[in-house]
Simulated assay, not measured.
Amino acid sequence: MTATMLFFEKGVLSTNAQQVPVAHVLDVDLRQSIMQKGRGVGNIVVQVQRSGGVEWVILEDIPDPRGALSIINKVVQDARLIEQQRSNTRIYANLPSVAPGPQAATVAPTPPPAVAPDPIEQLRQLGQLRDAGILTEQEFANKKAEILSRL
């Protein structure tokens, strides 16, 4: 059993393995005969909602059946809570960022005029990069020549 699925299989000569989403479990019961009580085992009966209807699954001779029943019920309860939260959650998208009201004409702001970078400041920063070891002497010389050519 995981937080989302109940796995079970049955058979000795051939195996019938199935899995059920725990959110589809409708009911879980414990059945225990006198013989099973003496051996400390029991049958757990799980009622499952399938696409074709309701199905009963019997997990036979489960050790500590009350503990197993408690675990299954807890996982099923948690899964139902998660499903309920999902169904109660609404996702809103593309909502206006302001409350609706009279529409005012909007004018896109004009971007500030582009300011040419200061070549002296660029050379100073370039020198700092070279002094920090980030640029090689060759990279520094190439970029310096490029900046000075724009003057």
Score class of each variant (00 low, 15 high):
residue 3 A to Y: 07
residue 84 Q to V: 00
residue 121 E to V: 10
residue 45 V to Q: 09
residue 110 T to K: 10
residue 87 S to G: 09
residue 121 E to L: 14
residue 62 I to H: 06
residue 33 S to D: 05
residue 55 E to G: 07
residue 29 D to M: 13
residue 38 G to C: 01
residue 57 V to D: 01
residue 24 H to F: 11
residue 90 R to H: 08
residue 75 V to R: 04
residue 78 D to Q: 15
residue 16 N to R: 13
residue 118 D to A: 01
residue 18 Q to M: 10
residue 124 R to H: 05
residue 111 P to D: 13
residue 85 Q to W: 06
residue 112 P to G: 03
residue 33 S to V: 01
residue 130 R to F: 02
residue 41 V to Q: 08
residue 35 M to F: 15
residue 135 L to S: 02
residue 68 A to H: 04
residue 23 A to P: 04
residue 20 V to S: 03
residue 5 M to N: 11
residue 33 S to K: 05
residue 97 S to I: 14
residue 50 R to N: 10
residue 5 M to H: 13
residue 39 R to M: 14
residue 28 V to Y: 05
residue 110 T to S: 12
residue 25 V to R: 05
residue 81 L to K: 14
residue 37 K to M: 12
residue 67 G to T: 05
residue 26 L to G: 01
residue 148 L to N: 06
residue 99 A to W: 11
residue 73 N to I: 00
residue 101 G to E: 06
residue 131 D to W: 00
residue 151 L to D: 06
residue 107 V to L: 12
residue 138 Q to S: 09
residue 93 A to E: 15
residue 1 M to Q: 07
residue 111 P to N: 12
residue 44 I to R: 02
residue 93 A to L: 14
residue 9 E to T: 05
residue 60 E to I: 03
residue 58 I to F: 08
residue 138 Q to E: 15
residue 71 I to K: 14
residue 25 V to T: 04
residue 80 R to Y: 06
residue 100 P to Y: 10
residue 32 Q to V: 02
residue 60 E to V: 10
residue 90 R to I: 14
residue 10 K to T: 08
residue 120 I to T: 13
residue 93 A to S: 15
residue 17 A to M: 10
residue 68 A to D: 07
residue 67 G to P: 07
residue 87 S to D: 11
